[in-house]
């Protein structure tokens, strides 16, 4: 019986250690104990930049999804959305930890999350705007999870073993995020006239932002076998989204982007990956970073 009759929390509380609180500061490195060496022939700064952009997508998406907690229609949806936000937060933490371990800068995940201004974030603009309604939330989540899963299932073969392992774990999570969101899109699209209208409006509003998801950044192109060129994810994305929209009786506004993107910018300066964001990101960061910036280095 020794040891089995006390819970972890009791043993922490009895230890006389001030760090016994489960949700205080002093979070442990999510990749503690992992060999962080950079594979030979891979540029550590590029690897860090790539891990950071994938982490940025997850953290900003997580923050937007989490804004819905307490405002959802049913308790079961509350737990689902909170779980999705928590999974994405976990993915961001691991990716940030991988970035910090690759560039030798001595930064930690908190530096990346709390001390960067909007122009230093490299998430796709797709994740940063607020959702107008529940239809907007589930539509954005369905499209985001479908895209990210298509990228991450390929990232499982990355020559960086840490990215490959993060992707393998994340792919399992993204699969059920995608299914959950897709089922709601179908319920709303194939529901009442009103719900159909709302979810179609959500799709129409998000569609111009889709094109950016498939533009490869210079870092992704340089990192060949380490990174996944998002172009490779396009066919799967279009196939899955086509199936979801058909079941939901929704009208696809056109090919991704519908030609609205300026094709002349493919070489760079293409938006979020290049640090060019909508006004929504700064407002999101203001809130997310306010405590950390008001009390630098504070612990409790």
């Amino acid at each position: 019986m020794t040891g089995h009759d006390v819970t972890v929390y009791e043993s922490l509380a009895n230890s006389g250690d001030d760090r016994r609180w489960a949700f205080g500061t002093g979070f442990e490195d999510p990749l503690a104990g992992v060999d962080m060496s950079v594979p030979s022939g891979v540029d550590g700064a590029d690897l860090a930049a790539y891990a950071t952009m994938l982490g940025d997508d997850a953290l900003i998406a997580s923050q937007r999804v989490a804004e819905w907690i307490t405002r959802l229609p049913e308790l079961e949806v509350e737990t689902a959305i909170a779980n999705v936000a928590l999974d994405l937060l976990g993915q961001a933490r691991m990716l940030f930890a991988r970035a910090c371990g690759a560039d030798g800068s001595g930064r930690g995940e908190d530096d990346l999350a709390y001390l960067r201004d909007a122009h230093d974030w490299h998430n796709v603009c797709f994740v940063e705007g607020p959702d107008a309604d529940f239809a907007g939330l589930v539509m954005r989540l369905a499209l985001f999870a479908t895209w990210r899963l298509a990228v991450f299932s390929r990232l499982r073969d990355s020559t960086d073993p840490i990215l490959a392992a993060i992707a393998a774990k994340a792919a399992k999570e993204l699969t059920y995020h995608r299914d959950f969101a897709a089922q709601w899109v179908v319920s709303l699209g194939d529901g009442t006239e009103h719900s159909h209208q709302r979810v179609q409006a959500a799709l129409d509003a998000l569609w111009p932002l889709v094109e950016e998801l498939f533009l490869s950044s210079p870092v992704e192109r340089r990192l060949q076998a380490v990174a996944v060129d998002p172009v490779m994810a396009r066919e799967e994305f279009e196939d899955v989204v086509g199936r979801i929209l058909e079941a939901a009786t929704l009208r696809c506004p056109g090919p991704p982007g519908g030609g609205q993107h300026d094709g002349g910018q493919h070489g760079g300066g293409q938006g979020g990956r290049d640090g060019k964001h909508s006004e929504h990101l700064a407002a999101l960061l203001d809130e997310m970073q306010s405590v950390a910036r008001a009390h630098p280095g504070a612990t409790w």
């Binding site: 972890v8 043993s11 922490l12 489960a22 104990g33 992992v34 999974d87 937060l89 976990g90």
Partner: peptide
């Protein structure tokens, strides 16, 4: 799971138990 907070607590408890067990140098990988 990626974001499971219980994992952090279990890891902390693991370190505490191992370091208190008189095993000598211990590393958690």
């Amino acid at each position: 799971f990626s974001g499971c907070p219980a994992m952090t607590e279990m890891r902390r408890d693991l370190m505490r138990r191992l370091s208190g067990a008189g095993l000598g140098p211990v590393e958690i990988r």
